[in-house]
């Protein structure tokens, strides 16, 4: 399946992917109303310091420990995509305790959220990838185990 990959060498550390992610998942049509003056809760995070920066989001692991650990069965894998049923999540943070990539964090409402590849939010393709000015984030098939 296609996954989001990051080329560290090309990342500018501009954090645009974080804004594009928050906007794509806001359900709003206009970026300013969605984000201006607000604390954003993106599902991708730019990490690193000084010279090296890169963005991290869910790896959609072949053997996802978040799915195996969720106390309410709210996380599942459908067609390779690891998704959260936000109506079931109770915010216990067990998934945060186990994800090796730190790819889950509560949203504004305290309910867990993570990258679902923009397949559920109507955007259709990862907004972080589409909006990356230096093509440092790509969405492609690299033959990894599903």
């Amino acid at each position: 399946m296609k996954r989001v990959y990051v080329n560290e060498e090309w990342c500018l550390g501009c954090h645009l992917c974080e804004y594009n992610c928050a906007f794509a998942n806001s359900g709003k049509n206009d970026m300013a109303t969605a984000l201006k003056g607000k604390r954003i809760f993106p599902r991708i995070h730019v990490e690193g310091a000084d010279k090296i920066t890169y963005a991290v989001s869910c790896r959609h692991c072949a053997d996802p420990i978040c799915v195996k650990s969720c106390i309410s069965g709210a996380i599942s894998k459908k067609d390779g995509v690891v998704c959260i049923d936000r109506d079931k999540c109770v915010g216990c943070l067990t998934c945060v305790l186990v994800c090796p990539f730190g790819a889950l964090a509560p949203g504004e409402d305290g309910v867990m959220q993570k990258c679902e590849l923009c397949l559920q939010n109507g955007v259709g393709a990862p907004a972080c990838v589409t909006g990356c000015p230096n093509r440092a984030i790509v969405y492609e098939e690299r033959g990894e185990e599903e």
Binding site: Y5, E8, Y54, V56, R59, D63, F101, G143, E144, E145
Partner: peptide, 13 residues
């Protein structure tokens, strides 16, 4: 960086 590439860049964990 090498470990990050292994973790993020293709090889599954």
């Amino acid at each position: 960086p090498a470990e990050r590439r292994r973790k993020f860049g293709g090889a599954s964990k």
